[in-house]
Computed example of a mutant assay.
Amino acid sequence: MTRRDPLDLEVITALGELTTRFFADYDAAAGVHGLSGAQARLLALVVTEPRPMSRLAVGLRCEPSNVTGLVDRLEKRGLVERRVAAQDRRVKLIAPTDAGTELSARVWADLNFAAEPLRGLEHPERLQLRDLLRKMSPNRAD
C-alpha cells in the first residue's frame, strides 16, 4: 500500500471541505429562487453554451434520465428550451431562455461561498490560486 504524502492529504481534505461548502451554499442560493441545486447547476451549464442532454449528464455527473426530469421542470417554468442542433437534427440542445439566463445570474449573485474566503486573499494571491487551480484541472487546454 502506498502512503500519501501528509501534505497531499491536507490539500485533498481542504479541497473536499471547500467543495462541500460550495455545494451547500449553491443549493441554498438556488432554493431562494425556487430551484434545486441540480436545476441551478444545469441552468448555469447551458448559459455558457447550449448543450445536448448527454453532455449535461456528464457535466452534472448523473444519469441521462435524471437530466430529462431536470430539463422538463425547467422548461415548464420557461427557463430552458429544447432546440434542434444545426449539425444534426436528431440532437436536441438545451438552451436557456432570457428568463433562465437572468435567473441563473441572480443565483450566482446570491452565492456567498466565494466572497468570504476570497476576501481574505490579496489580489496576487487570488491570481496565484486561480493559476494553480487551472494547472490542476485536467480539462484545461492551456
Rank of each mutant, 00 (worst) to 15 (best):
T2S: 13
R4K: 08
D5T: 12
D5Q: 08
P6N: 07
L7P: 03
D8L: 15
L9P: 03
L9A: 15
E10S: 14
E10W: 09
E10L: 15
V11A: 12
I12W: 08
T13I: 07
A14D: 07
L15P: 03
G16L: 10
E17S: 13
E17L: 14
E17T: 09
L18V: 10
L18I: 09
T19W: 10
T19S: 14
T19N: 11
T19M: 13
T20E: 08
R21W: 13
F23W: 13
A24N: 12
D25Y: 01
D27I: 06
D27P: 02
A29S: 08
G31Q: 04
V32E: 11
V32S: 08
G34S: 09
L35S: 05
S36Q: 06
G37H: 00
G37L: 06
A38D: 13
A38G: 12
A38S: 14
A40H: 05
L42G: 00
L43C: 05
A44R: 06
A44I: 05
L45N: 02
L45C: 06
L45Y: 03
V46D: 00
V47P: 00
P50L: 02
P50H: 03
R51Q: 11
M53H: 04
R55F: 00
L56G: 02
A57Q: 06
V58A: 14
V58K: 04
R61Y: 08
C62E: 11
E63C: 12
N66I: 12
V67S: 03
V67T: 07
T68C: 10
T68D: 08
G69S: 11
V71M: 03
D72M: 11
R73F: 10
L74H: 01
K76I: 07
G78M: 09
R82H: 11
V84K: 12
A85M: 08
A86Y: 05
Q87E: 12
R90V: 08
R90P: 04
R90T: 10
V91E: 00
K92C: 04
K92M: 07
G100T: 02
E102M: 10
L103K: 01
S104H: 02
W108Y: 09
A109C: 10
D110W: 03
N112K: 07
N112H: 07
N112E: 12
A114S: 12
L118I: 07
R119F: 13
R119W: 10
E122H: 09
E122D: 12
H123R: 13
P124M: 04
L127C: 08
Q128I: 05
Q128M: 11
Q128K: 09
Q128P: 01
D131S: 13
D131W: 05
L133D: 02
P138T: 08
P138A: 11
N139L: 15
N139T: 13
N139E: 12
A141V: 15
A141L: 14
